[in-house]
């Protein structure tokens, strides 16, 4: 299987140094993040993951994906041979072309597809929906949200440098589908945060001069 797509014989870079312990640590970070929306947790890393994927997102992918899951790759990662051969070699996850068929969507935030086109689950099986693993490395936007929902004690304000101007509206569309809908796992170089479908966001105006 190695490098089969282009006939090269390049050996993919290493995955986890210590698969059992590294995967456990990364999973607890993702579980904590999903249980405490707005907080970021240290995710460890897969230091030799392809640069386009990144160490943090690589660790999350190695932790959650395997031959029983399907993945759709968005943006530049979708065209990168190093990423697809690394993922295929270490996880065996099936890469699908049809986005609605994917259990996991792996994409930079800027290339995140319309959430309504992903697998949203059904009323009887809302768990058969997509989890979006979003690369948010280097994000530095001004967005700030007020969040409420399960996992949050009352309401909490948090910075979301990865978000763009239309995200809150797109997310509330996803909220409205509950119990259907998708969940976001946001990964930067070393930390993970998450938005389960239950988290409701409202935009805090951060324009200078306004309170």
């Amino acid at each position: 299987m190695i490098g089969q797509a282009n006939g090269s014989t390049a050996i993919p870079a290493a995955g986890f140094a210590d698969p059992t312990r590294d995967a456990q640590r990364a999973f607890r970070a993702v579980l904590d993040a999903l249980s405490h929306p707005s907080l970021a947790y240290h995710v460890g890393g897969a230091p030799e993951a392809p640069e386009l994927l990144g160490s943090g997102l690589g660790a999350v992918a190695l932790t959650l994906l395997d031959e029983e899951s399907s993945v759709w790759l968005g943006g530049p990662v979708g065209d990168d041979e190093a990423v697809s051969s690394w993922l295929s070699f270490h996880t065996g996850a099936r890469r699908v072309a049809e986005i609605a068929a994917a259990d996991f969507v792996l994409t930079p935030f800027s290339d995140m597809p319309d959430l309504a086109t992903l697998a949203l689950g059904t009323e009887e099986a809302p768990h058969r929906s997509a989890t979006v693993l979003v690369d948010v490395r280097g994000a530095s936007g001004p967005a700030r949200f007020l969040a409420e929902g399960p996992g949050i004690d009352g309401r909490v304000e948090f910075d979301a440098p990865w978000a763009d101007g239309s995200f809150a509206d797109r997310w509330s569309e996803n909220n409205r589908l509950f119990p259907r809908g998708v969940d976001l796992v946001l990964v930067d170089a070393t930390t993970v945060s998450a938005l389960p479908r239950t988290t409701r966001l409202s935009v805090i105006d951060t324009t200078p001069g306004k309170a």
Partner: peptide, 17 residues
């Protein structure tokens, strides 16, 4: 590890719903 991943994926959905 494969079993853990299967359970972990179920846990993430359980927390989300």
């Amino acid at each position: 590890e494969q079993t853990k991943r299967m359970i972990r994926r179920a846990l993430l959905k359980a927390v989300a719903i």
